[in-house]
């Protein structure tokens, strides 16, 4: 069976680095390593900004316009998919596309609330002093609650991925490592357009600069 490239290196790197960063942030907060938690938070900010930029100027399967559709279309797709009637997609399917958006929104909120949070033990997010203490305390609480919402979203994501992997026999996990899928599971693969590494690196550096300017200046 012929395999074709569907995910570029940058999307795959983003995915696994996001997982590593999220796990790292979880561990560091559990052990109270606040400086490391902050550094991981900054790295995740860079990743998220990069992903948004790559969603506009990146490869086809990363483009928001390529996978975002109306919520009704997504629900219809989800229903058909559960009945094993939905067609395969080269990149994100309509339901998966909404999951990407929700996950990005949840992670951005986590970053923003973290930047404004404090732990009352001498550690504060870089912007905690710009707001009053009560609001900072409130955001600290939301930062904690949002983590559980993200965890739930991750569980939902895993359930969906393994549904494809085990029931529909689409090798999504392998594809997220290799970037390739069997061509029969990637319709229109010929029209996929992959952008250069230079563009990706430029956007990544630009994202890092934005975070540095926001946080350190």
């Amino acid at each position: 069976m012929k395999t074709v490239k569907v995910w570029d290196f940058w999307i795959r790197a983003f995915h696994w680095l996001l997982l590593a960063g999220f796990t790292g942030a979880w561990l560091t907060i559990e052990y109270g390593w606040m400086q490391a938690h902050a550094v991981i938070g900054y790295c995740l900010s860079v990743l998220l900004i990069f992903r948004v930029l790559w969603g506009f100027w990146g490869s086809t399967t990363a483009h928001f316009t390529a996978f975002l559709c109306s919520p009704i279309t997504a629900l219809k797709y989800l229903k058909n998919s559960l009945q094993l009637k939905a067609p395969a997609h080269a990149g994100h399917n309509p339901a998966g596309g909404w999951m990407v958006v929700c996950m990005l929104a949840l992670l951005f909120w986590q970053i923003i609330s973290g930047l404004l949070a404090n732990n009352d033990l001498g550690f504060s997010g870089p912007f905690a002093d710009f707001i009053n203490k009560t609001l900072s305390d409130q955001l600290t609480q939301w930062h904690g609650w949002n983590f559980y919402i993200i965890l739930s979203a991750v569980w939902l994501h895993l359930v969906a991925v393994f549904f494809y992997q085990l029931v529909k026999r689409e090798k999504l996990v392998q594809a997220m490592f290799s970037g390739k899928k069997p061509n029969i599971q990637a319709p229109n693969w010929q029209s996929l357009n992959f952008k250069s590494n230079i563009r990706a690196i430029s956007l990544l550096v630009f994202s890092a600069l934005i975070v540095c300017i926001i946080v350190f200046l």
């Binding site: 559960l82 094993l84 393994f162 549904f163 085990l166 029931v167």
Partner: peptide
């Protein structure tokens, strides 16, 4: 694996 078994 069947759908039913998976969701169980």
């Amino acid at each position: 694996m069947t759908r039913k078994r998976y969701f169980t």
